[in-house]
Structure formats: C-alpha cells, structure tokens
Nucleic acid binder design. Structure first.
Lengths: 228, 228
DNA sequence: ATTTCGAATTAGCTAAGGCTAATATTGGGC
DNA sequence: GCCCAATATTAGCCTTAGCTAATTCGAAAT
C-alpha cells in the first residue's frame, strides 16, 4: 500500500515546514498560514506556495482559508525530524560538552544532513535515551512519541508537589537563566503563591530553595503532579 | 584588507565545487571543466555556469577554454571543507564505530552542515589528530596542511623498506578489500617484484607477510621511504 | 443583512543551480 | 597551414523557494 508513497528524500525547506506544522497542530487543530510564516520567518505567500506543493505530494491536508493538518505520512516525516533533532541535542551535550542553551542551532542544521544510521548509532551510544536535554520526549526510530500530560508551572496547584519534567523553549537566554536558577528537568517544585494580574510565581525547589519567577517563564516549565 | 572578502556563507554546491577544484588542481595545474563535471556528476554547462559565479565572487580564476585555479580565498574555503570532512571521518570511526569504508558518504553530507565550533570540539575530543582514517593529513583550523612527499607503492623501489602512509581512495569496496589484506596506514611494506605490462606487485607486509596486488590498487597506496 | 478588516491567496518577479541543444574554440594530425 | 574532433561556452529552459503587490475570502460587528 505504501508503494505509491515512495520515500522520496525531502528538501531542507520541506523538512522545516513539516516540523513547524507538527508543533503548531499538535494540540489537535489546524496550523494557520500566518503562524507557519511567523515560525519560519518567511512571508505568508511563500507558505501558501509551499502548502500547495506539500498537499500535492500528500504530506498534508489543506482546507483553504482555514489551515493545514499533517497526513499520516507527513506526521511520520515530522517525527523523524524531531527524533533527529532531539538525539543530536542530547549527543552534543553529553558527548561534546555543549551547554543545553547552545545546542539548538547546531542540531537545527545537522538534522537535515545526518543519516538514520548515524542517529541510531548516537542513540545507541547514549543508551537509547527517552528525553532530550530539555526534557522533551525523543520519538523512537519506529515513530512513536510519548504523550505525557504536563501542566505549565503557572497553572500548578498551590502547595502541591510536582516534578519539573520539561523546559519548553529553545531560547538560549531563557535557558541560561533557568539553568542558573536550578530550574532543570528532574527537580521537585511546589508553588507557594501566585501574584494576580500575571504577576510572579513563588515556588520551592527540591533540591534548591525558594525562587520567584515571572509568569512568562512559569508557562515554559512543564510539570507533572507527583501522585499522578 | 579582507574587509571586502566578507565571509559570506557558501552554498552546499559551491562548497562541493571548491573541494573538487582543490583536488584537481593540487598538483599545480588548472582544473578543466570536464574533469570538474565528471567528479561532481553534473553536465559540463552546469560547470561553466558555476565557474562564472565563483570567479565573480573571487573564489577562483578562470582562463577561458583552459581551466580554473583557486584564489587564496578559494583555497582557504576548500581547505576548511577538507578539514571538516577529515575530522568527521575520524570522529565517526573513532567514536561511533563506523568502518573506514563507510564514513565517506556520511561525512560528505555532514561537512556542509557542521559549525566550525563543532569540528573544533570533535578535533579536541580526538586530541587534535593529524591524519584521517585513510592517512590523509587534516588541515589545521588555521588552514595549514601537511605536504608530504609520498610515492605510490607501484613506483616504489624494489627491496627498499617503505611505510604505508595513506590509502588514496574513498571507494568502499576497494577500502574493504585493502583492509582485509592488512594494507592500512602505518604498515611497513617492501616491494619484492613487479610484473611487466602493468602486472601485479609482490610485496612483504610488516607485520603481515607476502601479498600480491594489482597495479590499480598499488597506485592508491601512498608510501614513504623509511630512510627519507 | 451588510460592511469591513484581517488573513489567505494569486500574480508575477528573482536567484541558484541544474538540464539539453546549439555554437565556438583549440590543438593535434596531415 | 588547414581541418577535424574534442572540449568549452552560450542560449534557453526547468524547478525550488523565496519576495512584493494586488486581490479575494470569511467572520465579526454593526
């Protein structure tokens, strides 16, 4: 049945579009032209053009003036890129001493050039890890990805123990600051209070101590209730 | 003085052209359009087109109907690519268990995507090595390359001790065969006899023993006289 | 029900880097 | 010294993937 869906190599641009569309539509909706354009830093008409090519080749479904969704084939290709990206990020930090805030750009370029073979060798060398340096799940070679139910720290319940699982940004400055505060995956966190009007969040880190962080950052810190 | 020669990023194609032109003109001559075309597996008019772009940007000098030579700027860019390629080949074999006959293709794609930073980290992790897995010298980050005077085994003097220094091919089948025969850089070799009419060469390997190999392969084995 | 405004699309352009077919140049053989 | 074959170049086309300007669509507000 997949004789027609020959595994033609995808261009660098196509790979970038698929990845972005995966992220934008991962919460089940459509990805809009303008959101895609903003994420890729291209003009909206460029996106319209690419959307036509991608839907012609069956990688996505386009509802004009509404948005796009990946087909199964498109989702498979996107997850392959995400696996590459996350394995690369982990390998670079673990084996070549990159900081977690500096790996993104390097991985972003390498993910288009590596073979599946190399990614699998890297993953094997790392013991087939399940999470990247930011705590994001690494899809398997078969294309499975863990769907954990995580809640932003900003929405966590007061005085309830959580575990910080994932830091949802690639911005080096934010990552550097958070690492400096000890806010890295694996830490225990308990929110003690939240100020109103999008004010700061006060929390206790374990191990660590008291911290006060702004709401913007608190939205990036994805957590899991300890009893869940 | 190099304010005008801004270090504009080069495209993948441009990097490939520079590398093959470097190799074709390394013995001091001009690289011809058709040789470049053959090495890159493109049609000769494509080469003519690229030559114009490259000489417009000052990366090479073109003498119409005769060929091209790299400028200093072009040579620097080519050596940077060669450094990348060779560091990658060594890293992949040393750290990710690639065979010396399988690294070429992977390095060929990665060399266009890695940063100088990553290459330097890999080189440092390997102890700033001077030779790649095939014995080819690795240019330094500053763009220096060792110019050793090596002689093909086919031209070595009879009953004189040489050291095998470099295997000058990237062809996996040939590399696999040579490794099977123990013909790898570092071995001692002494030619005992050469058959006429491009016939086989009989040699003694140290450590190893007697081997008989065809002239085609004997041309790829670059050696240095032990007393030189 | 109409208007309006923002989002999306189409039209038409550019540059890189391929291709084939046609033309120009060069150097070797006579 | 001339001619031919091999090599190089030019002419003209294609695709990818971007752009701006112009147009069209749809949904929210009147």
């Amino acid at each position: 049945m997949s004789a027609l869906l020959a595994d033609v190599p995808l261009s660098r641009s196509v790979e970038d579009y698929l990845k972005v569309i995966y992220h934008l539509s991962s919460q089940g909706g459509f990805a809009s032209t303008s959101d895609i354009a903003a994420m890729l830093m291209v003009a909206p008409p460029s996106v319209s053009g690419m959307i036509r090519r991608l839907s012609d080749t069956g990688l996505l479904e386009h509802v004009p003036y509404r948005g796009v969704q990946l087909t199964n084939q498109g989702r498979r290709a996107a997850l392959r890129m995400i696996r590459r990206h996350r394995v690369l990020e982990l390998y670079l930090t673990e084996r070549l001493d990159y900081d977690w805030d500096g790996v993104h750009d390097e991985a972003e370029r390498l993910e288009h050039a590596v073979s599946d073979e190399l990614i699998d060798r890297m993953a094997r060398a790392l013991g087939n890890p399940r999470y990247d340096p930011h705590g994001a799940p690494i899809p398997t070679a078969a294309g499975e990805i863990e769907e954990a139910v995580l809640v932003p720290l900003a929405d966590a319940e007061i005085r309830v123990a959580y575990e910080l699982r994932q830091v949802d940004t690639e911005d080096p400055a934010r990552l550097r600051y958070l690492a400096g505060q000890g806010l890295v995956p694996g830490k225990g966190v308990t929110v003690m209070s939240k100020q109103p009007f999008n004010g700061p969040v006060t929390l206790i880190l374990d191990p660590g101590g008291e911290r006060v962080i702004g709401r913007e950052l608190a939205l990036l810190l994805l957590c899991r209730r300890n009893d869940a």
